[in-house]
Design a binder for these strands. Sequence first.
DNA 1: CTGAATCCCGACGGATACTG
DNA 2: CAGTATCCGTCGGGATTCAG
Lengths: 140, 140
Amino acid sequence: MASARQISGPCQAWPEDGAFIREVLDRIGDKWTVLVVSTLSAGVLRYSDLQASIPGISQRMLTQTLKHLERDGLISRTAYAEVPPRVEYELTDLGRSLLEAVSAMADWAATHHREIAGNRAVSERTGVGRGRASAGAARE
Amino acid sequence: MASARQISGPCQAWPEDGAFIREVLDRIGDKWTVLVVSTLSAGVLRYSDLQASIPGISQRMLTQTLKHLERDGLISRTAYAEVPPRVEYELTDLGRSLLEAVSAMADWAATHHREIAGNRAVSERTGVGRGRASAGAARE
DNA sequence: CTGAATCCCGACGGATACTG
DNA sequence: CAGTATCCGTCGGGATTCAG
């Protein structure tokens, strides 16, 4: 999910259920949310702790992700007005419940990733999913 | 997940588990996969059926999503060499298992979306998650 | 009818510099 | 230490057009 979030009008399908699925998927679908949440499962952590625990993340993305998570009530932020500023982040109960749900997904992934990888490899050889993955030189 | 895929080196965190979580999240995280899969839960459908059943989708995205799903073995594609071309798509067992997992997520979403929406509304008023969502006119 | 190819804008997100 | 602001490249994905 990259662009198109509020631009195109009527996108919410799923006849009866709702659009909150997309709301949630937009959250856990981005590169860092799951990493941050799973890292916070360890307990209370400071900004720099998170940055250190999550190798590839930039300040920009860490801050943004934390804000989104805080806004949705998945984590709590506690700032101490000290001379060396200290801010602690912690999962809320809601955040922990999300972690459980995500873990279920991870469980599924762990169970089937081999099968998926296998199918992908076969498709590679038979030239099925030649859409844009690998294939190397489509036109460039 | 826009840029940074193979450029910055060590991005896969999650100490022990693995990176297939991201593999899966990259798949269900995009805007259309879940919609297509859930639509296909109805049974065998043709290309045009899918396009008609999923309001906002473009041919490009439908084709691309279908290819990815086929490549991963989540759906099967059957083309009939007839004069009016006919192609039918159907969920595989693997695809159905994904649907179950996604339904679990949807379940969680349905259970907590009110709470999340509430938190978000409060943060809106107290000006917490002023990162980039809503806020309307931050500077533009 | 089922795609494939192309154009193009805007969002995602990394790097860097600056502030309290 | 904990962010904020800005620049800018990359990529997602909608619209359109062409082909089998």
